[in-house]
Design a protein around this nucleic acid. Structure first.
Length: 111
DNA sequence: ACCATGACGTTTC
DNA sequence: CGAAACGCCATGG
């Protein structure tokens, strides 16, 4: 059966993240109507590997642009490598020009 | 219903 | 500047 839970929502939204772009857990949470559930977003992404491998979790970082979830990729540097492969500069586990690369799900409405 | 967990975010010390 | 506490809330046991 399909879990119409918060998790599934996060998965779908995360898949909308454009190539070479990044977003924050809080932004996704806010878009889902649960701005205070940023932690659930990360947790959902953790489950996404199990439920929706299509979800580019590497494009989701915390509000500081830090690759906080890199450790969940099995390979610590994997998340950084994936982002760099998309043209995203990473320095000291942080996204460079995060404010420029930041993508908000709300942009879907205006797209 | 209660307690524990968690890839966050903000505030306080 | 760094660490810790707190809030916040969905999911699972």
């Amino acid at each position: 059966m399909v879990e119409d839970s918060f998790f599934t929502r996060v998965h779908e939204v995360s898949r909308q993240i454009p190539y070479g772009r990044v977003t924050s857990y809080g932004a996704i949470a806010k878009y889902l109507g649960a701005a205070r559930s940023a932690r659930m977003v990360g947790w959902a992404l953790n489950g996404s590997k199990h439920q929706a491998p299509d979800v580019p979790a590497h494009r989701v970082v915390n509000r500081n642009g830090f690759l906080t979830g890199k450790k969940h990729f099995g390979q610590k540097s994997l998340m950084q490598q994936l982002l760099e492969s998309e043209g995203v500069e990473i320095v000291d586990d942080q996204v460079v020009h995060f404010d420029q690369l930041f993508w908000d799900p709300s942009m879907l409405n205006d797209l």
